[in-house]
Amino acid sequence: MKSDLAISAHGLVKVFSRGQTVRALDGFDLEVAKGTVTGLLGPNGSGKTTAVRILSTILSPDAGTAEIMGLDVVRQSDAVRRIIGLAGQYATVDENLTGRENIRMVAQLTHLTKSAARAKADELLERFKLTEAGDRPAKTYSGGMRRRLDLAASLVAAPPVLFLDEPTTGLDPQSRNDLWEIIEDLVDGGTTVLLTTQYLEEADRLAQDIVVMEKGRVIAQGTPAVLKAQLGTTVIEVSFASHDLADRASSLLTNLTPKPPIREGSLLELTVENGPKVAADVLRTLDGAGVELLGLALREPSLDDVFLSLTGHRTEDEVAEAAQPKRQGRKAKKESAQ
């Protein structure tokens, strides 16, 4: 075992059998260096959460091994629990307890003395701007406050390794930003963070290393820049006043690019090798055909584009297929990203 690794996993397999058999993890490998942030990226059902639950000792793997700071998550699970923190969508707070009581409970269960637990609660409430709300039951908290409390509770033992499972899912942009700043502070303090997310923007901002998962396996790994460079392309976005116009433009522009344009609503996306030249061609073609456009933008490929090129579908596709109501969330997400 290399000593500079905070997290390492080799060949993890986890099979769930509820009605049908699902291989949630199917030979999952991961190495996270100490003091870094790794983003685990993938659609719903790709195995991100299962990976985090195994690494945080909540589940045991069916095959494979994993170590946190050199401690085996199965054989030395109790020692592992002393050096990790877990926060996110599933690990949560007790709604009926106040913020202060929640932190004190976790502190006492981490075997701090009563007075140390009390001091820790005060300190963390202060640090997470919850002092005023500290004596109110957590059920009165906003989504953002709840996530901050959850994160505060996971930091009771000042763990060197922190797991954040979709820490900002469902939060408004302001709260998300607050939480990102907190996480960045933690990383500056030397904490190793493994973060799962469906938000490419989040991984892009926080993570030095990105691991892309699909169907329980790692399908790509690298820095955001490297992953984007793999595409070696530019994306041209052209927007129109209506779907019909966009459709018409799409057929006009098909010959300009190796891949056909992708239409989303009244927006066309062209992924090309030589951005500026193709952009000029696009303008010339559309002008010649009398198709009016609202706007044109050149941008670096986003991680979403990376994901699309790796898997052939966008990150949210499976989410939308899996559950119709989640479309709402998807829409909200798009808006907040703009």
Binding site: R53, S56, T57, I58, D78, R81, R82, I84, L86, Q89, Y90, A91, T92, V93, D94, E95, V106, L109, T110, H111, A153
Partner: peptide
């Protein structure tokens, strides 16, 4: 259902508690 058990299971506390 609320996920509290998940939190407890990741803490270094007695499994029976």
């Amino acid at each position: 259902a609320k996920g509290l058990v998940e939190r407890f299971r990741a803490l270094p506390m007695a499994r029976s508690a």
